[in-house]
């Protein structure tokens, strides 16, 4: 068990429930400007409880860490990120805008409001196939986190929140990382190991 004792406080706060679910396949981060700044696949052929997948013998790990799938090049990932960024923006724009009387217009002077003014338009929040579920979380500041998991995995929102907190800690507080640039940070990788691959 690597890194025991690091961040004890957080470890003790990990809800154990989702660990019983399927594995995490991959994590992608798309910057505010739409470029892929991080991608990592997680090995799913590890021994032990493999969740719904049930694969126990080691196999070649391909796309999104799924065994037996073809392997994507870095360029393929960049295309995926760029495409998704665009699709996400379009789905976001499908949020209705309800007209409001000028007298009620807010400080921004808009003549319309979203159905729930407290909730920003979100775009795609999840995408599912028979093999994986993609959970999307866009921060208010525009960064998108894409988490590929087994469809049976519960509480991916909790999982995602943990990823976001670790991003805020180990990426944003690192003076050697520049915004919009690729993330290559040891402490971030270690904290992801703890959060996403312990089982």
């Amino acid at each position: 068990m690597p890194d025991a004792g690091i961040n004890l406080l957080r470890q003790s706060a990990i809800p154990q429930v989702w660990l019983r679910g399927g594995p995490v396949f991959a994590l992608l981060i798309i910057s505010k400007a739409g470029s892929l700044i991080y991608h990592r696949t997680f090995p799913t052929s590890a021994t032990g409880t493999a969740g719904a997948g049930g694969t126990t013998q080691p196999q070649t790990v391909g796309t999104l860490g799924l065994p037996g799938t073809s392997t994507l090049s870095t360029n393929d990932y960049l295309v995926i990120a760029g495409t998704f960024h665009g699709v996400h923006a379009i789905t976001r724009s499908l949020t209705p805008r309800i007209p409001i009387p000028p007298s009620a217009a807010g400080p921004s002077g808009r003549s319309w409001t979203y159905p729930d003014p407290e909730t920003p338009p979100s775009g795609i929040e999840s995408l599912e196939s028979s093999f994986f579920r993609l959970t999307v979380f866009q921060t208010l500041s525009g960064t998108k986190f894409l988490l590929f998991t087994d469809p049976s995995m519960p509480n991916t929102d909790v999982l995602m929140k943990g990823v976001y907190e670790r991003y805020a800690d180990y990426v944003c507080k690192n003076p050697f990382w520049q915004m919009e640039m690729p993330i290559r940070i040891d402490a971030w990788e270690r904290s992801l190991n703890q959060w996403l691959t312990r089982r």
Binding site: G106, P107, P117, E118, T119, P120, T139, L140, S141, T143, K161, Y164, E165, Y167, A168, D169, C172, K173, M179
Partner: peptide, 20 residues
């Protein structure tokens, strides 16, 4: 500030503000 906002959002779990 540009980075600290993430810490704030990640920890406080609040939504967008309706007005200034």
């Amino acid at each position: 500030g540009m980075r600290l906002i993430e810490d704030f959002l990640a920890k406080s779990n609040i939504g967008r503000c309706g007005n200034f």
